[in-house]
Design a protein around this nucleic acid. Sequence first.
DNA 1: ACCTTCGGGACTGCCCGTTGAT
DNA 2: ATCAACGGGCAGTCCCGAAGGT
Lengths: 203, 203, 203, 203
Amino acid sequence: MAVTKGERTRQRVLERAAAVFNERGYQATSMADLVEVTGLEKGGIYNHFGSKDDLAVAAYEHNTGILAAAVREAVVPLSGSLERLLAAIEVYRRFAHEPPFPGGCPTLNTAIESHGSDERLHEKAREVMRRLLGATERMVRRGIEDGTFPASVDARALATVIVGAIEGGLLLAEMYRDASHMDRVTEHLGEHLRSLAEEGSEG
Amino acid sequence: MAVTKGERTRQRVLERAAAVFNERGYQATSMADLVEVTGLEKGGIYNHFGSKDDLAVAAYEHNTGILAAAVREAVVPLSGSLERLLAAIEVYRRFAHEPPFPGGCPTLNTAIESHGSDERLHEKAREVMRRLLGATERMVRRGIEDGTFPASVDARALATVIVGAIEGGLLLAEMYRDASHMDRVTEHLGEHLRSLAEEGSEG
Amino acid sequence: MAVTKGERTRQRVLERAAAVFNERGYQATSMADLVEVTGLEKGGIYNHFGSKDDLAVAAYEHNTGILAAAVREAVVPLSGSLERLLAAIEVYRRFAHEPPFPGGCPTLNTAIESHGSDERLHEKAREVMRRLLGATERMVRRGIEDGTFPASVDARALATVIVGAIEGGLLLAEMYRDASHMDRVTEHLGEHLRSLAEEGSEG
Amino acid sequence: MAVTKGERTRQRVLERAAAVFNERGYQATSMADLVEVTGLEKGGIYNHFGSKDDLAVAAYEHNTGILAAAVREAVVPLSGSLERLLAAIEVYRRFAHEPPFPGGCPTLNTAIESHGSDERLHEKAREVMRRLLGATERMVRRGIEDGTFPASVDARALATVIVGAIEGGLLLAEMYRDASHMDRVTEHLGEHLRSLAEEGSEG
DNA sequence: ACCTTCGGGACTGCCCGTTGAT
DNA sequence: ATCAACGGGCAGTCCCGAAGGT
């Protein structure tokens, strides 16, 4: 048998836990809460995860994997540097409108909650954010190399602006349960990137 | 005696608690931690604040008040719309470089941690963020009215972009303990606003 | 096939469990520990023993059986009353020097640990101790009857002294991992018995 | 105030806990049991003792202190070496008949239960036993020096015999709830010591 | 008036011995 | 003989009030 029953249960626990953790936070979610949402008893959960902390890490990786997959799926088929950046940004805009799980951006949430109290989780969040910044910077850099953007663009700085604005937009969207905040942020980023691309094509 | 001993103690508790709360989060900070940093016993703290929650709210307001005062102080002496906006943004940039208390942006922290688990605190954070968005929007709108910015500018959208980018920048700066992320974001916002202002002066 | 595979497995579990139980105690040994030392999964163990308690009883009887067999083996070939007593005592002295399993005297251990918390096990220990006291008393009584010891000897009292001293000696030997404590106790008992025998032969 | 309320409570908890711990064993006694016998809630108990382990150690020291005090009280007023030894032994005989707390000898119990599972407690027991052996040996040695006992006596060996026999006697007395086992052991020790003393006075 | 000491009790994460389905 | 699930029990921590003391 390729996928055992235990594997399926583990996956179910992971998904439910990931949703609740992201919505309420790790500390605010008790094992009793997880018992409730998973349908398993405590012992059953601990059969699959060694500790609440382990489950929290796995849950964060689960959520973050969903987002990363969506970005990859949207970006890979495209070839133009501008198009790829816009597509990646669009993924986050759609994430705000049709979230695959509740609670907003898991990296934002995890980074903030673990800050100063859970170094393991915080490092995970830093790592994910580092990858996001790195991927964005690489896309920008590619755009410079292929002439999409002018050489004067600072790739690292632009990546910070894009990622920062996205996270800020997701924060506002989640706080007010109003995804239009995210629309405004992505529109700004889109215009900015397109105007840079015009400069690039002129130069 | 205008300021009683109790009043001074209360203030001391508030300041210490506000710092620790912002650094580690509300839930991750126990009353025992506060006993340690304040020097008072548990009962002593409860003499001044009805509950840990009350203290948390007061602490958040304390921190947020410091930031608000800094913005007011920077903005009020200025008269030009562009200058006022830039000055406000600069306050946050400096906040990242020389934080008056540790742990990053209290509104970002509080909004995220209280999300889905503490409606009272979350509403406080929303209220503060609403004020920030409103004040920014008003400054932009004033800039449109006085001809600094072109009439085509969407004040509300620009406010979202500015505030969102600031929060995102503060997040990155705090995560990597590298305030230069914030420099990049504020530089981007500065350029954007200045370019809008040029359009305005041309039109 | 006289001895089935299951029977051999049961025996293996019993031996390993008996050793660990005697070394750490019943309560301090978890089923997980037994899984580790036996190589079987929990369910596998439960296939052979109905409960941890059942296994504990079987393990105690296993250990105690080893000691009883050693005493029998040493005593049966001998015919003199004094010699038989000395040989029995010598078995315990050797037990301290070359223990067939770790952890000291199983009856001492079991009696103490079960005291006040596990009547079933405690009764088992009492029974074994009763047999030991009885056998010793019978040997002494036989010695009185055959003239080895003077008639003035109180067989029951002497049995208590012998068994008590042995257990005390084993305790000290185990506590300090120094079997010489046991040597001293057995030497004392030997001298005492020999001096009684001298009285007997004179009278 | 010399003795605070907390101090009195702590003492009460200690006494009750010490009795229950000695009777049932440390592991078999849950904090819930202690809540029951002390009348305090868990939080109340943890105000006085940092952990169950700390309480266990304190309880053991409490029990052991009672015995040590009784021995000291009985021995100190006496001057003869033989009399002092007999008086010390008598304390243990009376301990079996009129126990100041239930469950038998705390050092025997603690040494056995902690063996292989709780090094801290086991070391405590070893230390107490070491002191008992040492004190006994010193009394014997003094007896040799003052001519009570013949020079041929091995003080260390005799101490081992005395202490070992006492512990063994206490074990049997407790197992069968029959203090007469202890009477027989102490009588044997008494006779042995007196016969040594006769040798001494002759030599 | 201010602070400490003491006690309460619910709740936490986790581990336990155990059982059924496979 | 295993794997998966159970559910009660464990020690320990939490926030909090009430009584006491200065």
